[in-house]
Simulated assay, not measured.
Amino acid sequence: MAAQAHLLLSQKLARTLKWLVAGLATVATLFLLTAWIGSAIPRNSDWAQPSTGVEIMVETNSVHTALVLPLVSDAKDWRSEFPASDVDAAHLPYTHVSISWGEREVFLNTPTWSDLSPMTALRIVGVGGEGLLHIAHYVRPAPSDDLRPMRITDEQYRQLVAEIERSIGRNPERKSYPGYNAQDVFYDAPGEYSVTNTCNQWTSNTLAAAGIKTGWWTPLAGGVMKWVPSLDNTET
């Protein structure tokens, strides 16, 4: 009888596990489908690159996206918010700053995606997490397929700057945290990360606020980059 009960229990657990896996697969499929549909719906659909203006860059590592901006321009000097003295290689002649927003635990404790634990991933999907700002300093970054330049008007750049300033807040007591290398750093930032408000959504929301064409819902990096002109195509 004990053996039969054990067999029945094992079969029940197997069925439960099977349904659980099937449910997770369904949720993942629905998420990817809605992400594909949402990112294909444009905001600011009539936008086109101007012939003159400010050149910015949109950066990706295929999972995460960032905005790469001139360190100093007529519209903004980012050195006040993001001083080079906050990074180890403070002596370099920086020309650009990479700005992105994401989830605190992932940013600080998962330097590579292989370090992301299943429990952290489930927590982010289920309940979200606190926001964190990632800043990297660059010296004359070279355009590539993962670092794509795009031109926007002076007014659009001012709007972009204003949106970034609003989203990062002004906390005189914000803390900084060591980055992944000698040229980057993390800062406290407002906002709650969730499956509907991801790092990539932050990028597209920031672009959209400046009137630049981008996808409506872009939880994945590809949904952002599909709207950024590739190197051999200067028009969107």
Rank of each mutant, 00 (worst) to 15 (best):
M1V: 11
M1S: 13
M1G: 15
A5E: 14
H6P: 02
L7C: 01
L8C: 06
L8P: 00
Q11R: 15
A14P: 09
T16H: 09
T16Y: 13
L17A: 11
K18D: 08
L20A: 12
V21H: 00
T26Q: 08
A28W: 11
L32F: 00
L33I: 13
T34K: 05
T34L: 09
G38D: 11
I41H: 07
I41V: 14
I41T: 11
I41D: 04
P42I: 02
N44F: 01
S45M: 07
S45C: 07
W47N: 05
P50K: 01
V54K: 04
V54R: 02
E59S: 12
H64K: 12
T65Q: 10
A66T: 04
A66Q: 10
V68P: 02
K76Q: 15
K76R: 13
D77P: 07
E81H: 12
E81V: 09
P83I: 10
S85E: 12
S85Q: 13
S85V: 06
V87E: 04
D88R: 13
D88W: 01
A90F: 07
H91K: 04
H91C: 03
Y94R: 07
V97S: 07
S98T: 11
S98N: 12
I99L: 12
W101G: 03
G102W: 02
G102S: 08
F107A: 05
F107S: 05
F107D: 02
L108N: 01
N109Y: 09
N109H: 15
W113H: 10
P118T: 02
P118G: 00
T120Q: 07
A121L: 14
I124H: 02
V125M: 04
G126S: 15
G126H: 08
G126C: 09
G129M: 01
E130I: 06
E130D: 15
H134P: 01
A136Q: 14
H137T: 10
H137R: 15
Y138Q: 04
P143W: 02
S144E: 03
D146N: 12
P149G: 05
P149Y: 03
P149K: 08
M150R: 05
D154E: 14
D154V: 07
R158A: 13
Q159C: 07
Q159S: 15
V161D: 12
A162M: 03
E163Q: 14
I164F: 03
E165W: 01
E165A: 08
E165Q: 13
I168D: 08
R170H: 14
N171F: 05
Y180L: 09
D184Y: 07
D184L: 02
A189G: 11
A189P: 09
Y193H: 09
Y193M: 07
S194D: 12
T196I: 13
N200C: 02
Q201W: 04
N205L: 12
A210M: 06
G215T: 08
P219K: 07
P219D: 11
P219F: 08
L220M: 07
G222R: 11
V224R: 05
K226H: 10
W227Q: 04
W227H: 06
V228L: 06
S230H: 11
S230E: 10
L231Q: 04
D232H: 13
N233E: 14
N233K: 13
E235G: 03
